[in-house]
């Protein structure tokens, strides 16, 4: 597993959910870098991958939070 910045992660896994091990975060908990240990278009796959592990992780969707569906 290679350490990558979050910008690199977004480029390598566009519009996917990623599970990041050993995340480096700023004080607002924004992920700056880490090691991608699972990636999928399906969020449930990432939750399943998290369930198999113990420790501290980060979950992110790498796409924009924007679409044709509105949230109320």
């Amino acid at each position: 597993m290679k350490e990558m910045t979050f910008e690199e992660i977004k480029k390598k896994y566009p519009n996917e959910w990623v599970l990041i091990a050993d995340p480096i975060e700023d004080e607002m908990l924004e992920v700056k870098s880490g090691k991608v240990i699972a990636h999928s278009a399906k969020r449930d796959m990432i939750y399943s991958a998290l369930k198999e592990r113990r420790g501290n992780f980060a979950i992110r969707y790498t796409g924009k939070i924007k679409g044709k569906t509105f949230v109320l």
């Binding site: 975060e25 607002m28 908990l29 501290n56 992780f57 980060a58 979950i59 939070i65 924007k66 509105f70």
Partner: peptide
């Protein structure tokens, strides 16, 4: 704390770490 949000996204979101018996997850 000053947080800049992305005006191109539909929602304002924050990062939070949820702690559980088996570990923790930083989620949006």
């Amino acid at each position: 704390f000053l947080i800049t949000f992305d005006p191109d996204e539909d929602l304002i979101h924050l990062s939070a770490r949820i702690i559980g018996p088996f570990g923790s997850a930083n989620a949006r």
